[in-house]
Each structure stands twice: as structure tokens, then as C-alpha cells.
Amino acid sequence: MKKRALRGGVWLALILPGVLFITVFMLIPLFSILFSTFSADGSFSLDNYGKLIQSVYFQQVFGRSVRLSLLSTVLCAVLGFPCAYYISRYSKRKGLMMALAVFPMFTSPVIRSFSWMVILGRKGIVNQFLVNVGLFSRPQSLLYNEFSMTVGFVQLFLPQMILSLLGIMDSIPEDLTEAAGSLGAPRFVAFLRIVFPLSVSGLVTGAVLVFTGCMTAYTTPQLLGATDTQVLSTMVYQYAMSLRDWVQASAVAMVMIVVTMLISSVFNRLSKKINPMAT
């Protein structure tokens, strides 16, 4: 093998097409927009970011993105954890349960957001129910606000949380909890002291997927939000397509990249560190 490597050339020919493709069509454009955000009138300047950060509108949009992503991540964790635990430990049809989580994941996000437009609309079943129960006197719009966006986000990313938790929970030997039980630990204590600490790394992995997913999702905020509930991704789209303000669109895009990369690299490292099952 060493001899082949020394002869060289072959590996270069094999990687070169892909390297060139990604460099030309992704890296060069990315660095170009990065440079464009750091220049004003041809010289280096931080003005574009200064303008962005000082704009109340951007602050609101950024705050909303972070807030909704955090809220959705917490909701996914709270809903996903008991589900994954049940499927991993009690379910007799694990394969089916996994398939049912994968099915929505494979379904177009447009269709999934659209389904909430049907359900939460004025004539939707949620409104019918709330009017019948007497909570509302007449149908209220439950759509095009942060509530409907959060519902959409949670439904969009919950399967990812469930699957990454399942992955880690399935690797916890059942002997551990059984041993704890036979030594007298009540089931809940065994769960709290054994299963939960061992699952935290899966929880962190899932949380990173959900958070970065929500921070960058476009379909859900576009269909279930409104013009006064913009998030970063719809802001990039608006600046680029409606306002044709390339520089501001690029600056917002850079903010998105930096935030998502920072969050995922920090937390994925953390997740590896705290996973006692690794190595």
C-alpha cells in the first residue's frame, strides 16, 4: 500500500473532480459573500454588521429565531424523551414505531406545514373543538403567529430527536437497570441514576439537530408565520428576493452560518465528551 501511495497521482485524480466542484460552486461563492460583507466602498469595514446589529428589526428577528428554536428544542426533548424510552424498553413493535417516526421525516416539509394550515385554520378541527367546548365564542386565527410556527417546528424535528435518543438508549444494556433493580433500587431511581445519565449524549445530539434545524428552517416559518413573525431564514430570502439587497442578505446569511456552526461544534464536542458508552 505504501508503494502505491508513493507512486501518487491516483488519489489526486480520484478526489480532484469533487474538490473542484465543491470549491468552485460552494467555497468561492461563500468566501465571496463573506468578503462582500466586510467591505464598504471598496475598503475594509464592519459597517454592514454594525448596521445589522443596530437595527431593531434585525434584533427582533434574531431574538425570535433563537427563542423559537430554543422553545422547540425543549419541547422536542420533553416529548421525545419519554417516547424514545418507551419504544426502547417497552414497545413490542420497535420497527413499526421507528418507521412511523421516519415516515413524517421523509414527507415534504411543505405538506407537513400545510397540514397545520388545515388543522389550525379558522375552519380547522382545533377551532371547531374549542368553540364547541365553549373556550372560544367564535373561531380565532391560530395561524400565522409564533404559536403555529412552534407547533410546526416541533412536528418537523421531533422524529430526529426520537431517533437520536433511540440510538443511544438501545445501546444501554438492560442488564444495568435489572442489576439496579435486583439490588433494591426502585425502577424510577434506576431510570434516574442509570438510563438518564447514559442518554444525555443522545439528548444533546438530538437537541443540536433540532436547534440548528429550527434556526435554518425556511418552509415552516414561511407557511405558518407572517410578515411580522420573520426569522433569519425568511429574512435572507426577503433581502435577496424582494429587496435585492445582496450585502444585507449576505450578512444575515453569515450570522446564520456562524451561529449554527458554533452551536453544533460546541455541543457535539460536549456530547462526545459526556458519552460514557464511547470508546
Partner: peptide, 10 residues
Amino acid sequence: LIPCIVLGFI
């Protein structure tokens, strides 16, 4: 690693 919306934009 790059958000799709950014890929679309570039």
C-alpha cells in the same frame, strides 16, 4: 454544515 437557505442564496 451550510444552511440550505444560504446555499440557495449563493
